[in-house]
């Protein structure tokens, strides 16, 4: 059995979880796949049946209403043992990255983190995962009976496969939490994390001022994307949060489209966007290294080009309505 830890949000299963679930279904062949949900009064878990879950396992308790690293890790590890699962997948979301290493340590299981491809080799998982922020790819083999992997969001395809999705429950872990999320200060509604975004519009030193990022916000909004920044822009004191930083010391992203505006293309930045399907570069310096890897390059003044692009995208979007 492959067990997939899934998260729900706003009454449905999160897309990164569906990606992990779809990949589990693909790997499992005729073997069963179970989607595991942990929380209090879970709604939206039923979605999992449409994405290949033979079983939907719920661990529900008021003590699990708020995320706790140790309590969630023990709940998930207990489920692995209870179901006799030999493979556990989680999406490398903020919770997945937080819980998976604890689970692996608890079970003495190998963990391949933030993988971009999976296959089976002699019945065990084999993973491909980027290292050096994407400058190299490692093939990882497991030596352990239980194998755990976290899947990088936005890399694995979501595939609809209807299965029974028979709901069962497991008891919550006993004992109290060691640490817990007391409060979540929400960002703007509907704003995706950079690692989950399909379209990222990013600004660099060429933006000249934080206030000019409004241009990028408008373009991102027209495309349904989010705004990122290079390290140079974050370090410039323009009031751009670290959480927006793309690159080796920021976030490694894999959107369908990455639009780099006024970004020269330092090696650390380039490493962080190597997973992007398409890259657009807008820069006034025709020799900027970013052009060497851009699918589409525009040599020009971003302050002229970006508003025109926003206009052109809006025109296409309104035509297609």
């Amino acid at each position: 059995m492959i067990l997939v830890f899934c998260e729900v949000k706003d009454g449905s299963t999160r897309k990164p979880s569906l990606e992990a679930l779809s990949e589990a279904r693909r790997l499992a062949g005729d073997d069963p796949v179970a989607a595991l949900f942990v929380g209090d009064k879970l709604t939206g878990a039923e979605d999992a049946a449409s994405y290949g879950a033979d079983a939907i396992i719920k661990i529900e308790s008021p003590t699990l209403a708020s995320y706790s690293s140790d309590l969630f890790a023990s709940a998930i590890a207990d489920a692995v043992v209870a179901k006799g699962a030999k493979k556990l997948l989680l999406s490398a979301t903020s919770i997945g990255k937080d819980a998976a290493p604890r689970i692996a340590a608890r079970l003495g299981a190998g963990l391949a983190a933030d993988v971009t491809a999976l296959c089976l080799k002699d019945g065990r998982l084999q993973a491909i995962r980027p290292m050096y922020a994407g400058k190299a790819n490692a093939a990882v083999d497991f030596n352990t009976d239980i194998q755990i992997a976290t899947t990088r969001p936005n890399v694995f395809a979501v595939a609809k496969v209807s299965k029974a999705g028979a709901v069962e429950t497991l008891p919550p872990p006993s004992g109290s939490f060691k640490s817990i999320v007391k409060e979540i200060i929400a960002k703007g509604s509907g704003k995706l994390d950079l690692t989950e975004a399909d379209v990222i519009v990013s600004g660099g030193r060429g933006m000249k001022d934080g206030a000019n990022f409004k241009l990028l916000e408008e373009l991102a909004e027209a495309m349904g994307g989010v705004v990122g920044a290079s390290r140079a822009a974050v370090d410039a004191g323009w009031n751009i949060p670290h959480s927006a930083q793309v690159g080796q010391t920021g976030k490694v992203v894999s959107p369908a489209l990455y639009i780099a505006c006024g970004i020269s293309g330092a090696i650390q930045h380039v490493a962080g966007i190597s997973g992007a399907r398409f890259i657009v570069a807008i820069n006034k310096d025709p020799d900027a290294p970013i052009f060497k890897l851009a699918d589409y390059g525009i040599v020009g003044d971003l302050f002229e080009v970006v508003p025109e692009l926003t206009k052109a995208i809006r025109a296409i979007k309104s035509d297609s309505k």
């Binding site: 692996a104 003495g108 299981a109 190998g110 963990l111 391949a112 084999q126 980027p130 290292m131 994407g134 400058k135 190299a136 790819n137 490692a138 093939a139 990882v140 083999d141 497991f142 030596n143 352990t144 190597s274 890259i279 052009f291 060497k292 890897l293 851009a294 699918d295 589409y296 390059g297 525009i298 040599v299």
Partner: peptide, 19 residues
């Protein structure tokens, strides 16, 4: 628990078109 059996460099991206 895990071991790296192979390390490879990603295929370099090539420059596309300039508009």
């Amino acid at each position: 628990a895990i071991k790296i059996s192979a390390l490879t460099l990603p295929a370099p991206r090539s420059e596309g078109v300039r508009l």
